[in-house]
Design a protein around this nucleic acid. Structure first.
Lengths: 309, 309
DNA sequence: TAGTGGCATAAGGAAACCTTATAGCTATGT
DNA sequence: ACATAGCTATAAGGTTTCCTTATGCCACTA
């Protein structure tokens, strides 16, 4: 889903911001070290792109219209984001001794690792972490190749060349759109009912899918699929737009449930648990930075407590 | 303070984002309806602008480097901001009846409104909503000027020209970094202890701050501040990196607590509640779209259910 | 009424960008 | 080893965008 054209130029937004602050196109042009006509033209083309009158030029100096004020506000988020991107790029460039390479499978990388890394960065902003993501197989390959110090996978695959340890548990849940009839249902969905309902799931070979099929086959049941998608995000989008029940990691849908996009349906008779394992190379000892990360993770899972104390 | 040149083009960031998702420059080019060489050149010039190697092209298909992953992450904020800007501009442009202008104070706008609007859009994709944010004062001004149909503020300010009604309640909580000693504490923090501890809080005049000071003064206590910051996000970042206890809205920290960046500390003896109020102009009746939003909100606060069914 | 600061338009040249055509490279399968 | 398929880079040519300088008009102010 690319942005809708025409996309305004960020520097034009920046310029508009200066106009709002300084009250004149001329001053803004000076601040941005460009000629006044250039600034004037930029702003005009911005107005053309947004199809909005942003400035009122009929009173000598340029005055923001109400639409202009609104756009300035919205552009603040964009500018803030751009600033941190530029700053971040600079940091990566001037880089790093305390460099930690992490590779994780999708769900962990998307929903768990960011929290860990934020804490790690908070404890020492000089630490630079690069995160690579892929499926379980990919994680193993990267680790064996020595292209990352530490990895995370879902499920219980434990190749012999690599050490591994469980760091957290996760479980799968059934979700539906708020408009789906199951959203208002009180009784849990039985294993049998679930196995005969077409579900939106990940493609065969993914960790999520394996757990689901394993749980069903242990009860002598088989999975019925409605759509098979390649990412958790795709599943969430499909389910939210009415594609029927889907199965995803609980970790992946917390905010969607809070925002009312998805509703969790209780199930019974199926063990949809799986562990999240850390893997490392037995050949090389963990780097000190990697050790810190491990300590952070252990701390956070033991000291975690509910929001309601 | 203009942006530091060179500023990368947002469409290039968008393109990079697609490359990350689709795994190939060619596919990304297709999605963005441009030729493959054009995409290739855009990405190359993005790399030149940032002075970073973002893609590894040595294996047939393009693979993100660690720097590439980092840039994609940062660019997400930029793209998100640009998307809401474009959406907002579209809303301001179209004067039709499917157009709803909402203005909300920071906490509500960031943590509550997105969920409501998503549900509203789901119920009727034709509805176009523009969201503006600011402090309580700003919300009132916009409403009085008639630049929005409906507004949301924290606290109980009720100017006479505007109607208002409580739609939800919120409360403030004390949070600390997981490394802080209070994180492991069992006993609730007393009002007295809290009032004598330097806290990280919002600046004077903010709704959050007013509630906190009000609650303390009703017990004959006064607030001791350690740092005063201008946004909830800033407070969270400061607290997470060890600046001592902070006070923020519960709404704002749910995911941070889940991710282990912050820990909630129980308190006793202070009533840190506040209501979130909807405000509208008494002069004009609510538009039909606004009424739908109100109904959505009422529904969602009554039918909301916990993640664990 | 003159002056000052500010914005718009015009013209010319430089730079950026896109498209089509083409060639080289990598992985996969026979 | 060979061939095919899919992907990316380079080249050439044309269009569009953007900037700068020069100049005129307009609105406030003294």
């Amino acid at each position: 889903m690319p942005l809708i054209e025409p996309v305004p130029d960020v520097r034009s937004l920046d310029l508009l911001h200066s106009v709002a602050e300084l009250g004149s196109i001329r001053q803004a042009a000076l601040r941005h070290t460009m000629s006044q006509p250039a600034a004037s033209m930029r702003l005009r083309s911005l107005e053309r792109a947004l199809d909005l009158q942003l400035l009122d030029r009929s009173h000598g100096r340029a005055q923001l219209t109400s639409a202009g004020v609104a756009v300035v506000q919205w552009s603040e988020e964009v500018l803030e984001g751009m600033r941190s991107l530029l700053l971040g790029a600079q940091a990566v460039r001037s880089d790093g001794k305390t460099h930690l390479r992490v590779v994780a499978s999708m769900t962990v990388a998307e929903y768990l690792v960011p929290g860990w890394l934020n804490r790690l960065r908070a404890s020492d902003p000089a630490i630079i972490v690069s995160l690579q993501m892929g499926n379980t197989q990919h994680v193993i390959e990267v680790m064996l190749r020595g292209d990352a110090e530490i990895g995370f996978v879902e499920g219980r695959h434990a190749p012999s060349e690599l050490g591994s340890r469980t760091v957290q548990s996760d479980n799968l849940v059934v979700v539906v759109a708020p408009s789906h009839r199951w959203a208002r249902r009180r009784k849990p969905v039985s294993a049998l009912e679930l196995s005969t309902t077409p579900l939106v799931v990940r493609e065969a070979g993914s960790g999520t899918r394996e757990v689901l099929e394993g749980a069903m086959s242990s009860r002598g049941l088989t999975l019925t699929t409605s759509v098979e998608l390649g990412s958790t995000t795709a599943i969430k989008a499909a389910v939210a737009s009415g594609a029927g029940p889907g199965v995803v990691s609980r970790l992946a849908i917390e905010t969607d449930v809070q925002d009312g996009r998805l509703v969790v349906v209780a199930t019974e008779g199926l063990l949809l648990e799986r562990s999240i394992r850390m893997v490392w190379s037995k050949k090389r000892p963990l780097s000190s930075t990697a050790k810190r990360l491990v300590r952070q993770i252990d701390d956070s899972s033991s000291s975690r407590r509910p929001v309601q104390p």
